[in-house]
Amino acid sequence: MAPDPLALFDSGPQTLIQDDQGGVVYRPGWLDAAQAQRWFERLRDQIPWQHQRRMMYEREVDVPRLMAHYRHDDPALHPILKVALRSVEQASGVAFTSLGLNYYRDGQDSVAPHHDRLEDLMPGYPIVLLSLGATRTMRISRQQPPRHRIDIDLQAGSLLTMSYASQLQYLHGIPKQSAALLPRISIAFRVRPRAPASPSPPLPRPTAP
């Protein structure tokens, strides 16, 4: 059963950052605990998680988490992701085209401070993060003076909405933690730019008679 979008407001949204595009807003309790746990367990066990490597400081390193990515119209989209997509779209009024999943297996899995690649986002549209599983701390920090930092505990069943404008001013990340932590899954809903149309192939040159 899809969550009631009105429950977002019953749980008390918290505005962490203000800007003219909606800022950064945290909404705990969007999913009840039992449903969030069911979604976590099924996605943990049924998503074909990928282990990736990336270049960093001139050497190839492991990405410290598992990942998966789907387009909104992907035939392989998991049924839970279909329900989550419809529900988040209804709550936000945005038609998202991309779902990015991260699986943090323990406290050592992390993501470094970053902003989303602006060329991969449609200007003016937000990013929405749904958290499942164990609570993890997200660190949000301003890139330019006056610098300040916000640490927010992302609970299971919560939504975090980040405006496009916030990506211009702030970095966000999930730092490593030395404490033993249970796994967490995040689902990021984004609007990607449309791929440019493929150019028409050149017409063959006429041959001489």
Rank of each mutant, 00 (worst) to 15 (best):
L159T: 02
I150M: 07
Q167P: 04
T161M: 11
S163N: 07
L132Q: 02
T137C: 12
S163W: 06
Q155Y: 02
A179N: 09
P175T: 11
P145L: 11
P146Y: 11
M162S: 02
I174V: 15
I140V: 13
R149Q: 14
S163R: 07
R139D: 08
S166A: 15
I185F: 08
A156Q: 06
L154A: 07
L181P: 01
P146I: 11
Q177I: 08
P145M: 08
I152E: 10
L182P: 00
A179E: 14
Q155W: 01
P146C: 09
T135R: 12
S141H: 03
R142V: 08
Y164P: 01
I140G: 01
G133R: 01
R139Y: 03
L168E: 04
H148D: 13
S178V: 13
M138T: 12
Y170C: 03
A179R: 14
D151F: 09
M162P: 06
A180C: 03
R142P: 01
Q167R: 13
L129D: 00
S166N: 07
S131M: 05
T135S: 11
G157H: 06
L168H: 14
L160S: 02
L130Y: 08
I174Q: 01
A165R: 15
K176Q: 13
R136M: 09
D153R: 15
H148N: 12
L154D: 04
R184I: 09
G157A: 10
I127M: 06
M138Q: 09
Q177A: 11
A179V: 12
G157I: 10
Y170A: 02
Q169R: 14
I150Q: 06
S158I: 05
V128G: 00
R184C: 08
S131L: 05
M138H: 01
S163M: 09
R142I: 09
L182Q: 15
H172L: 08
Q144K: 15
S131D: 04
G173C: 12
M138S: 03
L130K: 04
I140Y: 04
V128N: 00
R184E: 07
L181R: 14
L129H: 03
A165S: 12
T137V: 14
L159W: 07
P146Q: 11
L154H: 09
P183R: 07
G133Q: 03
S158A: 13
Y164W: 14
Q169C: 05
T161F: 00
Q169G: 08
A134W: 05
I140H: 03
I185Q: 02
M162A: 07
G157S: 10
I152C: 10
R184A: 03
L154V: 10
L154T: 08
A165I: 02
L182G: 13
S163K: 02
L132V: 08
S141A: 14
D153A: 15
L130C: 05
Y170V: 04
L132M: 07
Q143H: 08
L132P: 05
